[in-house]
């Protein structure tokens, strides 16, 4: 047993530093994806709530496709497509030059696209939970549509969407493990490398699971605190 834990040592012989680096990449990946995915989700939600038929159709198609596809498939396709697409655009704008998207950025885009599809549904639910009269009242006070959204809808949206977004954040942390299948040296991939060398799959995968568990538990505490803060001023029923 002591021998096993020796494998977790930091330094040349142990795998502790590799696992820590992998865990750090996992956290960075999730944290970088979050704002991108939230923004995308909000845009899609607004498109789906829009008066414009075509925007609505685009929003709905987007959600249907990316909520229906396995994350593994989406990640693999987007991861490889993003660079091809970037190449095409760059060749079109400035022929001869090249533009390199790092594996990390491609991973962020791929995870963000999936996160956007799910978070748009949460935002949509939150937008619809705000009584229509509030927006109408805003408009009748002479606010523009943008002002109404910014001053009346947005501040409440946060509170209403938070529980759903908290769940999606947990899903996102777990989904980052799928990028290990592509190329990024995240926690799970570093674990696989360690298993490949040490032939101790049970021990290392258990450690990886516990690290992920730590992330989700910390996140749960964090989102609970955020929810409490967002709900201050609302008496418990």
């Amino acid at each position: 047993m002591g021998e096993l834990f020796g494998l977790l040592a930091f330094g040349a012989e142990g795998w502790g530093d590799e696992l820590a680096a992998g865990a750090w990449l996992t956290v960075r990946l999730a944290l970088t994806t979050l704002p991108f995915g939230l923004l995308l989700g909000l845009c899609i939600a607004l498109a789906k709530e829009s008066e414009n038929t075509y925007l609505r159709a685009i929003g709905n198609t987007y959600t249907t496709v990316f909520r229906g596809l396995p994350e593994l498939l989406t990640l693999f396709v987007i991861y490889n497509m993003v660079q091809l697409l970037a190449n095409r655009i760059v060749q079109f704008v400035a022929p001869g030059s090249s533009f390199e998207i790092s594996g990390f950025a491609a991973g962020v885009v791929a995870l963000g696209v999936v996160f956007g599809a799910f978070s748009s549904e949460v935002f949509l639910g939150a937008i619809r939970a705000i009584p229509k009269g509030q927006g109408e009242a805003g408009r009748s006070l002479g606010l523009t549509a943008v002002q109404t959204f910014r001053l009346i809808t947005m501040p409440q949206l946060w509170r209403l969407a938070l529980p759903g977004l908290g769940n999606l954040w947990l899903v996102l942390i777990k989904d980052t493990s799928l990028v290990s299948v592509i190329a990024l040296n995240d926690l799970l991939r570093q674990t696989q490398v360690a298993v490949g060398v040490t032939k101790e799959p049970f021990f290392f995968y258990l450690i990886a699971c516990l690290i992920y568990l730590g992330f989700t538990l910390i996140s749960t505490v964090g989102t609970n605190a955020l929810e409490k803060r967002a709900n201050r001023g609302f008496a418990m029923r």
Binding site: F76, N80, M81, V82, Q83, L84, N87, S98, E100, A183
Partner: peptide
């Protein structure tokens, strides 16, 4: 470093 399954696609994608 790139997983074997995706090693050719990533070359084509200029990674």
């Amino acid at each position: 470093a790139q997983d074997w399954d995706g090693i050719i696609p990533a070359l084509l994608a200029n990674r």
